[in-house]
Amino acid sequence: MTETSSFTAEGGHGAVPTSCEVEVDEGGHAGAQPLWEVFVRSRRGLSHTHAGSLHAPDAHMALRNARDVYTRRQEGVSIWVVPAAAVVASSPDEKDAFFDPAGDKAYRHPTFYDVPEGLTHL
């Protein structure tokens, strides 16, 4: 059967063709509606955690959409939406150089130190 080579079960809902390609522009696009990053506080006492993103024309709609998309089962008690364009991120290419300075400072961890046997509360 040669036809079978043109599709496979990729996503969750089953077999789809594998020939459908899209041009990828790594720079990303400015869609018709701006992209928002969504952060959800799952309960009081915990910090907000990134949940995903969505498109909305303004902050107000972004909040409402975030409620419908990310908290349909009471997953949150508070939501932040942040324009994706406003996020400043460290670069993955500079990952090593950027985080290296902490690499050779083992003395910042308690495990660096020897504790005499038998002593507690140290």
Binding site: P17, C20, G28, H29, H55
Partner: peptide, 29 residues
């Protein structure tokens, strides 16, 4: 959730919907 995940790879959601609407991309049979 999935369209947002796809967008992190540098594609635009409107473009993906367009591919669906014009039959150039498929969905599960």
């Amino acid at each position: 959730y999935l369209y947002s995940a796809a967008e992190t790879l540098g594609v635009d959601r409107d473009e993906l919907l367009d591919l669906l609407h014009t039959g150039r991309q498929k969905y599960s049979t």
